[in-house]
């Protein structure tokens, strides 16, 4: 991140209306420390990458629920493959897109454990479409954390099933063209007709408010899993500043400007 970038942040700050809450009435003893469920290894993600926020929030929820020793996570093929280094709970690395099927196998052996399939958009909504739909349709009692960054991050920025119309990627020079490439795929809406899917919600990470909503959604999904409710999925609209060729702040703005109108936030299917 270049030094000139600081000037840009400053500009944005001054342009932004002060949204500050009156400090005195705000929470006095609020603290934040590194979640116990995270290892010491620094995240390997690019600067400003949304994966870091989602992974940390997930660790916070697992800590708060006190379920670390009962949690089994999946580190997908994609940038989140690094998660196997970062969580202090048991981890499994499935093949590209097979997370929901692997999670099924784990959960059927260990029904009293919490099984979390963390997946990217290419992983979940392209190569793993069949596994996703059928795990949801079986009402498999697992939670999918779906990080939708509208691009294939790890492989250097190809079109994802969730890439926006007109979005430039390395495989859509000139932008995604619906005629040639089809339309951005809305996973929550797609799954919402399935009886087995009980909780499908979409959040983002563009502001503290949204990150907190993401955390609440993840917590709710895991609690539902602990109650044996069925298939739960939290879709998080996230950033890939590197492959979007933007700085982290522009990337957050791009979600708000381009993605949110197409991918509505909130519960798509409630429980």
């Amino acid at each position: 991140m270049g030094w000139r970038y600081m000037a840009e942040i400053k500009k944005k700050l001054s342009a932004k209306k002060e949204t500050s809450m009156p400090p005195s009435t705000q929470t006095h003893k609020r603290t934040f420390q590194r979640p116990k469920s995270l290892t010491d290894i620094p995240f390997r993600y690019c600067p400003g990458c949304g994966h870091g926020i989602v992974a940390r929030v997930l660790a916070e929820v697992v800590d708060e629920l006190g379920i670390r020793e009962k949690t089994i996570g999946l580190a997908p093929v994609g940038c989140a493959i690094w998660l196997e280094d970062h969580f202090e709970w048991d981890m499994v690395g499935p093949a590209h897109g097979r997370g929901p099927a692997v999670a099924t196998g784990i959960k059927r052996v260990l029904p009293d454990h919490v099984v979390l399939s963390y997946q990217g958009d290419g992983d979940l909504a392209a190569i793993g479409t069949a596994e996703m739909i059928h795990a949801a349709n079986r009402g498999e009692n697992i939670t999918v954390i779906f990080v939708n960054n509208a691009v294939y991050g790890m492989t250097q920025g190809q079109m994802a099933p969730t890439s926006m119309i007109g979005q430039e990627t390395t495989t859509t020079p000139g932008g995604r063209d619906a005629k040639r490439d089809g339309f951005p795929l809305r996973v929550c809406e797609l799954l919402s007709s399935l009886e087995g899917a009980v909780y499908l919600t979409r959040t983002t990470i563009t502001s503290p408010k949204h990150v907190r909503a993401t955390k609440r959604a993840i917590r709710k999904a895991i609690e539902l899993q602990m109650q044996g409710a069925g298939f739960t999925l939290v879709e998080v609209l996230s950033t890939c500043p590197t492959n979007w060729r933007m700085n982290p702040l522009q990337a957050m703005e791009w979600i708000e400007k381009e993605m949110v109108s197409y991918y509505p936030l909130g519960e798509i299917k409630g429980a």
Binding site: R98, A101, A103, T104, G105, I106, R108, A130
Partner: peptide, 21 residues
């Protein structure tokens, strides 16, 4: 547990999961 999976890819992936556990 018996699951008729959606494909052989899914079946072997479920085996991967169950064996992991």
């Amino acid at each position: 547990t018996f699951i008729q999976s959606e494909s052989e890819i899914a079946a072997i992936s479920m085996v991967f999961g169950a064996a992991s556990a």
